[in-house]
């Protein structure tokens, strides 16, 4: 179907309008994070405040220990992402080589686990972590990485490894290679795009995680950025420019990672796309 010029034009107008609806709030956040502190509320819609107060971004680092919190967030997210890469790819690698019937069971289990909302486990996990003495430790925050964070990541590796000819694993095994060696030398190098996607997705997952640090972290020096934002909100209730600056500090890396994924990971299984959340 060849579409006429007028139709394309109409489509472009519609697409741009709707896109703006989704992007404008974020642009407002960017510009208003630069609004000088202490100004009275704006009378009209301010597209670009005058003068631009870049100092907002340094002020928030003095108001709350933002640097420390960013460090904590980076620590938890990095450990969480790396650990997930290990556990999820191990599980996926083991699954493809199990007998067919077991594979079916495990895939079924993983899909059912996908449907468990995290709200169902906040409270009992708190009880379990209290028993295990994990409350107020970073371990409580990246604990889900021990099970691959989400069963979806295990499934992603499973589907990736299933596309690899199984004879490759078989022949290496007959040569006497151990499972760990085959995983390291043959399987993982063939799953680079999946590994990168899982790393980025889990990093942003732990970076964005709010409820876990809220429930499991007690001492302020272990707060992550997400809880730090709450802290700042309570300290500077009406100082919107500062709050929005902090929002940008938290959001910008996630958006960056998302754009990187869009432009660099081109293995276009629809799955790589629907994985966040």
């Amino acid at each position: 179907m060849k579409s006429s010029f007028l139709e394309s034009l109409l489509w472009q107008v519609a697409a741009i309008t709707i896109t703006l609806l989704f992007v404008t709030p974020l642009l407002w956040v960017v510009t208003n994070s630069l609004r000088p502190v202490g100004l009275p509320p704006p009378r009209t819609l301010e597209w670009l405040p005058q003068p631009l107060a870049w100092s907002n971004y340094s002020t928030i680092f003095h108001l709350i220990p933002l640097g420390r919190q960013i460090g904590n967030s980076i620590l938890v997210s990095t450990v969480g992402a790396l650990l997930t890469l290990l556990t999820a790819s191990w599980a996926g690698f083991a699954m493809v080589q199990l007998p067919k019937r077991w594979q079916g069971w495990l895939v079924g289990l993983a899909i059912i686990l996908l449907m468990v909302p995290s709200a169902a486990v906040w409270l009992p996990r708190y009880v379990i972590f209290t028993l295990l003495g994990l409350i107020d430790t970073y371990t409580a925050l990246f604990a889900p990485a021990f099970m691959g964070t989400k069963s979806l990541y295990v499934l992603m590796f499973y589907w990736t490894f299933r596309r690899v000819p199984q004879e490759l694993f078989e022949s290496a095994r007959l040569e006497g290679a151990s499972a760990l060696l085959i995983w390291r030398r043959i399987a993982l190098p063939m799953a680079h795009p999946t590994a990168l996607a899982v790393l980025l997705l889990t990093f942003t997952h732990y970076w964005s995680d709010f409820v876990d640090p809220l429930l499991f972290i007690k001492s302020e020096e272990r707060y992550t950025l997400a809880v730090g934002l709450r802290m700042l909100q309570q300290m500077a209730v009406t100082n919107w420019s500062l709050l929005l600056a902090a929002v940008m500090v938290m959001t910008a890396p996630v958006i960056l990672v998302y754009l990187i994924m869009q432009y660099f990971i081109r293995n276009e299984s629809p799955l790589t796309r629907l994985l966040r959340g």
């Binding site: 989704f22 992007v23 709030p25 974020l26 942003t204 970076w207 964005s208 709010f210 997400a226 934002l229 709450r230 929002v247 938290m250 959001t251 996630v254 958006i255 998302y258 966040r276 959340g277």
Partner: peptide, 9 residues
Amino acid sequence: LPSVIPEVA
């Protein structure tokens, strides 16, 4: 884009 923003933010 709005779907990737962390929930606190």
